[in-house]
């Protein structure tokens, strides 16, 4: 049997899926959360020495490690006064029985692009700030490493990326070369964007779906917001939402933003 995520779903998950649906019909979840609750969140920053910024986020069983590297590169012709941002994601084979060795899967590319959009649209980093000198600017590489998969990679990755960027330092640049050993100033982060993901299972909508719930979900919606605006959205999987459902989800995403932002800033200011 194939799920709409495109990979083979084993029959044991299917048996669990039936159980999840039955529970949801009574507004219950496997781990006894309320429908609109996040799982436990823990964030650790600056855990890697060689990366300019790093953070590990645990969202329930999902674990995402994010490393930020800054590299001096030639500026682009059309944007001579600014640096660049590159976000990529890897669903590592050690994170799940389902992930295989090989080139990045469409899921990994979607994840990276959705995180990239939120950071850009929210103007979290001023790319002009990355400018070094005529013809040279920093490129910020944000790499998302999925270490353990238990659903909702989007929200965990957003938190990991924002925490790693907020804790990142800019190295010294001297005589046309970067001195990576010497980090002189904090990377300026102007805005924090957080994501909240919803999954629709039957007619019920749950927040922060875990792996079992994602496996049965007919559709998924990620809403990335800052204090004022919606900054990025992504609907995934083949099902659909009504307009009312989307409006309600947006309200909740704004509601959750304050809490998530507090987690992130508390960690990165340590």
């Amino acid at each position: 049997m194939f799920t709409n995520k495109g990979y083979y779903m084993n029959s044991i998950n299917l048996a669990k899926a039936n159980y999840i649906k039955e529970l949801l019909s009574r507004d219950l979840r496997e781990d006894s959360r309320a429908l609109m609750d996040f799982r436990d969140i823990s964030i650790n920053t600056n855990i890697l020495k060689n990366a300019e910024g790093s953070a590990q986020v645990d969202l329930g069983g999902t674990r995402v490690l994010c490393g930020v590297k800054l590299q001096p590169e030639d500026t682009m012709k059309d944007t001579p006064d600014q640096g660049n941002l590159v976000v990529s994601a890897e669903l590592l084979p050690l994170a799940s029985n389902e992930y295989d060795y090989g080139p990045p899967s469409p899921d990994a590319i979607e994840l990276a692009r959705v995180v990239d959009r939120g950071i850009r649209a929210g103007q979290c980093i001023d790319l002009k700030d990355l400018f070094i000198e005529e013809g040279k600017a920093w490129t910020a590489f944000v790499d998302l490493y999925i270490l353990n998969f238990d659903g909702n990679l989007f929200d965990a990755s957003y938190m990991a990326a924002m925490s790693a960027l907020s804790s990142a330092w800019v190295p010294k640049y001297e005589n046309d070369a970067a001195v990576m050993e010497e980090r002189i100033k904090k990377l300026k982060v102007d805005n924090i964007v957080t994501a909240t993901t919803f999954a629709k299972i039957g007619q019920k909508i749950v927040l922060d779906p875990d792996a079992n719930e994602e496996a049965v979900a007919s559709t998924r919606l990620t809403i990335a917001v800052d204090k004022e605006f919606i900054r990025a959205m992504q609907k995934g999987l083949s099902g659909s939402f009504t307009q009312k459902e989307i409006q309600d989800a947006v309200d909740i995403a704004f509601e959750k933003h304050a809490m998530l932002k507090d987690y992130i800033s508390a960690q990165s200011n340590k």
């Binding site: 890697l48 060689n50 490393g67 590297k69 890897e90 990045p104 590489f141 790499d143 990576m180």
Partner: peptide
Amino acid sequence: IKCRYAMAPFSSLSDHGRSG
């Protein structure tokens, strides 16, 4: 036995490695 050894792109101080 299938074995994968890989260095994270952020694992070294000097360069941002290419993934894969």
